[in-house]
Design a protein around this nucleic acid. Sequence first.
DNA 1: TTGTCTCTTGAACACGTGTTCACGGATCAG
DNA 2: CTGATCCGTGAACACGTGTTCAAGAGACAA
Lengths: 342, 342
Amino acid sequence: MSPREQPPQRKHAATSFDVARRAGVSRAVVSRAFTPGSSISPESRKKVLQAASELDYRVNQMARALNRKRSDLVGLVVSDMANPYRAAQIDALAKRLVADGYRPVLFCVDGIAETEQSISLLLNYSVSGVVVTSGLPPEAICYKCAERNVPLVIIDRGHHYPHADQVTSDNAGGGREAAAKFMRQGNRHLVAVEPDLVVFSVSARVEGFKRAAKSNRCELTVIRVSDPSYASGQKAADSFVSRSMRNAGVFCPTDLCALGFLDAMRTKHGADIPQDLSVIGYDDIPQSSWEFANLTTFRQPVGEVAATTLELLESRFADPEMEERQVVLPVRMIERGTTLQQ
Amino acid sequence: MSPREQPPQRKHAATSFDVARRAGVSRAVVSRAFTPGSSISPESRKKVLQAASELDYRVNQMARALNRKRSDLVGLVVSDMANPYRAAQIDALAKRLVADGYRPVLFCVDGIAETEQSISLLLNYSVSGVVVTSGLPPEAICYKCAERNVPLVIIDRGHHYPHADQVTSDNAGGGREAAAKFMRQGNRHLVAVEPDLVVFSVSARVEGFKRAAKSNRCELTVIRVSDPSYASGQKAADSFVSRSMRNAGVFCPTDLCALGFLDAMRTKHGADIPQDLSVIGYDDIPQSSWEFANLTTFRQPVGEVAATTLELLESRFADPEMEERQVVLPVRMIERGTTLQQ
DNA sequence: TTGTCTCTTGAACACGTGTTCACGGATCAG
DNA sequence: CTGATCCGTGAACACGTGTTCAAGAGACAA
């Protein structure tokens, strides 16, 4: 460490007034120098920027937000952070928001009540928008956002919402494709692991799978579990074994769930996958490519979801009266070792 | 959906002035009604609260922040979100911050340059504090924070920093305890997987392990890898096998790394653990308790880290001149199936 | 030279809040 | 009844910025 301890001089941060004085112009000119497309002469701008850099001036975002009635803060309400997929999604969203000049304010919640409360709090901050990836908020909150002109984007929900845009991956399509893959492989039994917990995206996947199976007159078995977690996947495995099916294709609507199923089948029940049975998941979390798992799954396009979210946010901000939109992004199946090569 | 579409009336949010008029008092009284410990008569307060709830009044946090020269925003700078331990830490920190009345502003970064840039941006928001869990920032940034009276808490770094408090788990202690466990078990060879990438917390664990081994004159082997990731763990396994050691105890400074090692040893090299060798990790991420892994590891006290972080933040806010503090929290070994029961 | 037009400038206001300070009413002791 | 003390109140200011608007400077054509 340097021997000369820098004294912690608590000097007040430079304001636009200080910069104006130093540059020999009025404060308004300083403001204009930092506002793109504003009417200012090149020499004035240069003088201001020079003075600003000398004083290490930075515009006070609180004052700016108060004046413009809009901060560049964006609420980010998420639940279930323990799911690696969610962490990846947050990472992508946060980076994208920052890259576009916004600042994400993070709320980690459990349950709908907390979601509503968080959004309500967010409204006090003149946020530029709110992104929700947790349990869907009550409609009342949508109206509240609309009243205050706050764009609302909901990720991974399918229900129609007033004044809110949505973006989701092609959940039903993934389910269908999983069923098709099993049928191509020649699996006799199609098995769907279906959580009781109602989460739109997850339900849509199972629904797509079931419909495809039924419309092709396949034998379909449903194993009900409480939620789409690793532990539920383990329980599903016990349930599966007790039915002693042969040549089955099992679709788990979540990688976590699939990994629980897979792990229990191999480690506990000694199953040989994919010889005895095939398994497909959904999300493509990093753990799915680990050696023990080597899980065939659907890759969610986290980057595209983030990019689309920002487009929706900004376009609705430009035109609040715009019709609600729902964007569905395609998913791609990543074939690994829990299905047969073809 | 309700048939009566609520019209999106863009009425401006109620201000304290509106509330004052409705309650028949002055605006100052409204402010006092919402400021605890302020001098106001009970009947005035009641009138104000009544009017406020009727108008759905909420104080404008931007104006409040501008006036108080301090928002309740707290910067949260993190890297390596792909590590489930990091996600858990963020979850705990975010929840704790919100519970204490703060709002976390999330910056997901890669590398030190981005960290510095993020903190620099944060300074424009009159933040109440900054929490850094990513690569350690340059000292200059510490002085900048101190100048602006912004408390800075650094998580999981050991280096001394000016004007910044630190909180970390007992990394060296964990390493020592891992070595002790192996010795109690009667392992002949002690093996440390050591990443080249310098991350303080990780290095401290390995250092603690190596010292304990040396001071007990154990045979110590170091396997060098690039970083503490799952992939590096796999590579370490290849390297380990090529040395054909028997009765070894392997310490991986990260669960991700340990799981990579474990997975490769079992799945690829057919090792029988813990009969052939023992493995201990660090972090206790959820995946470590999965059946395939069943990894013995050290549980990081994410909740306590979060609580301590807030204490440090708030106390330094109260007294900025306070001496820098470094809090070390104990870790607990969770014994599972990759070590011998005793 | 004069009139018009374009471009830049600075004074003033608005944004919504917390806080200071002087004032007035009420309570209480003498 | 009088003077002192205490407490609640409201007017005014400060926080730092973006923007409006009238005015001024300069360029150019007639």
